[in-house]
Amino acid sequence: MNIISYIFFTFVIVGTFFAILRIYLGPTAPDRLVGMSTMTTLTTVLLVFLGYFFNRYVYIDVALVYAILSYIGEVSIARYLEGGI
């Protein structure tokens, strides 16, 4: 089970690196927003799996709060890009 955990951490952290690279060199503003959206989804899965890795039940609430609230930020930036807020 330990080997699977480290494989998962390696893949997710390399994926976060690609998303940060897209935030750095995206030519337009929606590109950067796509990178941000990918990073929030990866982070939610990482938080749930770290809750399993530390074996605590209470830690999963953070992932629940993050999954609800990251939606508001992305939709507000998208509405700003569209023109009316």
Binding site: F8, V12, V14, G15, T16, A19, L21, R22, V45
Partner: peptide, 13 residues
């Protein structure tokens, strides 16, 4: 799931 997440992030790049 780790394979899908890695391929999605690589597609972003």
């Amino acid at each position: 799931s780790s394979a899908f997440l890695f391929l999605g992030a690589f597609g972003i790049y």
